[in-house]
Design a protein around this nucleic acid. Structure first.
Lengths: 246, 246
DNA sequence: CGGGGGGTTGATCTCCTTCAATCAACGTGG
DNA sequence: CCACGTTGATTGAAGGAGATCAACCCCCCG
């Protein structure tokens, strides 16, 4: 049992205020949202939404990490999205969920019942506009992953995953590391494998190999030190900097 | 040399009127679009947009087929989108193109200069709304492909591609085939390989195998007869019907 | 006739999967 | 406090799916 995290009810000082679907809202629009929103807590490992189920709400991840996954009948599983704080869950205009959403860590979500939210979208262009922007970003991310899944080697896949997590860490926490970076892996080896279209054994082997070659250092299983990000991005096979550094 | 296709300038009887980004527009809004739109023709094989280039226009594919591809320095190439009539090209709010856009067949595009179109989006919610809808659909398609790329076998990949093309054909042409279907492959073996994260040799072999096993029949290289779609979708590894049939 | 683009097929190789053993960390109940 | 089970991770050995390299075919077109 864990203590349910207390979250400010004030949108004004919400940690994801300036990045979530509400980012562009004016104070009065925020007021409207504040009236219909509600928070939900999920424990690590808990399934937030089952694929195929009816979805009666949409919302934003406030804290914690969740995954979007697709599973075939025989058990093969592919992650199709990694939801970090400020990411949006659910699809306005559709009733059924297309993917499983699973909490990787404890998760707090800011939810809206679907119907009122849809109404709000038509009356509040700022929300619709921000959602479009976020969806376009997700589409770009998905397409980047298609290259990873389709054409990269196992080693490059691991390097790609690490550098993407590092990049997100960088923008989320407004750090500005030049070369050395430290990241906490939010995923198990198995989850990484599902993300990368590999087996967990291959993930483990390639992480060991990158460590042996000095591309990364490990402290425990989940704590990764990246001595030189350029080196890592080189291993990922991306052209030069990938827009990461100047 | 080919004759440049003549396209009606009237939005009212445009072939993609009810599916493109303009689908939800009222007559007066259509009028505004009509004033700023212009058509461009591209020949098969021609690159419409180079990745990294400045994009000064957005637009819809009116006829023909184009591909979105990402290429690594060493030449490895992954297709990340297949653009059919009514699909939208370009990203409002971004200057540089992220992918190569290449005409697979002769292509006619209905274009708008980016800046005026962006202005229109804020003033015409119908356009923004439709674009959001289309982007969400594309995101779903991209995620479906992530499963194909990450977890399916070569044989399943081919079957998936064929059944997706068949499905699109079905909705586009409002046919309602029960079991037997005929499709024209719009792609070379190499393009299919780039779509599926395979080599063209493997594509060729798996197509031959599906033919040998009676899942498909071939007339020439590009004309595919599908005696039983259920059988094909079975081979694709999708659960039962995938929403295709009733 | 020659050449080139698209396609098929064969032989070989290799990278990743599969199967399996082992380990460390952790919690739990006797 | 220790035996036990569990979960996540590492490592090894063997096998296979798909890549690679290469030859060849078909068809169209100049």
């Amino acid at each position: 049992m864990m203590a349910t995290q207390t979250i400010s009810q004030e949108c004004g000082d919400c940690p994801i205020r300036h990045r979530a679907v509400c980012a562009r809202c004016e104070p009065d629009e925020l007021q409207t949202l504040e009236e219909i929103k509600y928070y939900r807590n999920f424990q690590a490992g808990q399934t937030i939404i089952w694929s195929g189920d009816r979805m009666d709400f949409v919302g934003s991840v406030v804290s914690g990490i969740a995954t979007l996954t697709q599973t075939m009948e025989d058990g093969r599983c592919q992650m199709v999205g990694l939801l970090l704080p400020s990411d949006f869950v659910g699809r306005p205009g559709r009733d059924g969920a297309a993917y499983d959403v699973v909490a990787t860590t404890d998760v707090v979500m800011c939810c809206f019942r679907k119907r009122p939210f849809e109404d709000l979208m038509t009356s509040t262009p700022h929300i619709a506009h921000r959602l479009l922007e976020m969806t376009l970003d997700e589409l770009d991310a998905a397409r980047e992953w298609m290259l990873v899944l389709g054409r990269k080697t196992a080693r490059e896949k691991i390097a790609s995953l690490l550098s993407i997590i590092a990049r997100r860490d960088n923008t989320l926490n407004k750090r500005n590391a030049k070369t050395r970076m430290v990241i906490d892996l939010p995923l198990t080896r198995e989850a990484m494998a599902d993300y990368l279209g590999l087996t967990l054994e291959t993930v483990s082997r390639q992480i060991s190999a990158l460590k042996k070659d000095g591309v990364i250092e490990l402290e425990g299983k989940r704590h990764v030190i990246i001595p030189d990000i350029r080196r890592l991005m080189d291993e990922a096979g991306d052209d030069s900097d990938g827009g990461f550094l100047v």
